[in-house]
């Protein structure tokens, strides 16, 4: 499944849901080392154009992530008033395009460094943290019982998961060991009833326009657990993309985020709980970076980009030590 998708196969795959047409301007969008995102236009017989995005898994994957779950989740989010791209077509095996789906293309920016620096988003930036709070509250209000079966993953389970993963890779990370000890001593009480967690709620997974957040992307890591995980992940330093003093995604402040979250029905979050989840998120990103490097080292996907992620682990170790010392 390497290389560009076949435009004719793509046109056939979407014909049933969006109508006949020919695929033009097929191009790979940047970002996403582990998953392919393609943009294309469909031109119908009358010459009308409509923009779409194809998301699909590249290569032969180990494990079996079910894209239909993500598809249903995005539809549930849309029904709950969360801005998401409309998902139109779930790829079938007979389409010959791999696993994935086609959705409406929403115009806007996803590249964090542009969102944080370009003049076009200068007016939007001060509003993004509050928007994140409102959106997160809406996501967390979706009843898990209305969704397809999602994995349950609470704080204690995640600590155990990352400890095991670190052992699997077999490389010593004393900074992460200090972090695991610190986290294990501070596991917040689990929520009365587990809630839907987006799982990758951060700068980089938002489509942003001059008016603010237009859509939330990347629902593939959704699970059921403690919703404050999403707020902590949003504040992880790696997702501030160089604007370290704006704790929320590099664009906003924690008080703005939490006030909006609470105002939209989310629960009250104290600093210690947020710090726990930022710490766990930092560790998680560090372990993911190790995993990405090993995806290269094991020969699963050879890539200079994945290889160098192994050397970014030290950044997350540094960040985690800062959090242990009371910094952010």
């Amino acid at each position: 499944m390497s290389g560009a998708p076949d435009p004719e196969a793509l046109a056939r795959a979407v014909a049933g849901t969006v109508g006949d047409g020919s695929v033009v301007d097929l191009r790979r969008l940047s970002g996403g080392a582990s998953r392919e995102t393609w943009s294309f236009d469909l031109v119908d017989a009358g010459g009308a154009r409509r923009g779409f995005v194809l998301r699909r898994d590249p290569g032969e994957h180990v494990g079996d992530s079910d894209r239909s779950t993500e598809y249903q989740l995005i539809q549930a989010a849309a029904a709950a008033g969360v801005a998401v791209p409309r998902v139109l077509t779930l790829l079938r095996p007979e389409d010959g395009l791999g696993r994935g789906f086609v959705m409406d293309r929403i115009e806007g920016e996803t590249i964090p460094r542009r969102i944080l620096r370009d003049d076009a988003y200068a007016d939007a930036r001060p509003r993004l943290a509050a928007q994140c709070g409102e959106i997160a509250a809406r996501i967390h209000a979706i009843a898990p019982s209305s969704l397809p079966d999602l994995p349950g993953l609470d704080a204690a389970a995640q600590i155990e998961q990352y400890r095991t993963l670190i052992d699997t890779f077999g490389e010593p990370h004393p900074a992460f060991e200090l972090g695991l000890r610190w986290l294990a001593e501070r596991v917040p009480p689990p929520p009365a009833r587990p809630e839907l967690v987006h799982g990758d709620f951060r700068n980089g997974n938002f489509i942003v326009g001059p008016d603010g957040i237009r859509a939330v992307l990347d629902w593939e890591l959704a699970h059921v657990g403690d919703p404050i995980e999403d707020l902590g992940w949003l504040c992880v330093k790696s997702w501030r993309f160089g604007v370290a003093d704006r704790l929320v995604g590099g664009f906003g402040s924690v008080p703005d985020l939490l006030a909006a979250y609470e105002g939209a029905g989310g629960r009250t979050v104290d600093e210690a709980t947020l710090r726990f989840w930022v710490g766990l998120g930092t560790l998680k990103w560090g372990v993911i970076c190790i995993g990405q490097a090993f995806t290269h080292l094991n020969g699963l996907v050879r890539s200079v980009e994945l290889a160098t992620l192994g050397r970014r682990v030290a950044e997350t170790e540094w960040d985690l030590l800062q959090i242990l010392d009371g910094g952010w």
Binding site: P174, R311, A314, E315, E317, W318
Partner: peptide, 22 residues
């Protein structure tokens, strides 16, 4: 002492990997 050592080691890793991060 462990924390001081670990912090120093991570700092040395960053001096190689990405000095601008420090």
């Amino acid at each position: 002492a462990v924390r001081d050592h670990v912090r120093a080691t991570v700092r040395e890793k960053l001096l190689v990997a990405n000095p601008g991060y420090l």
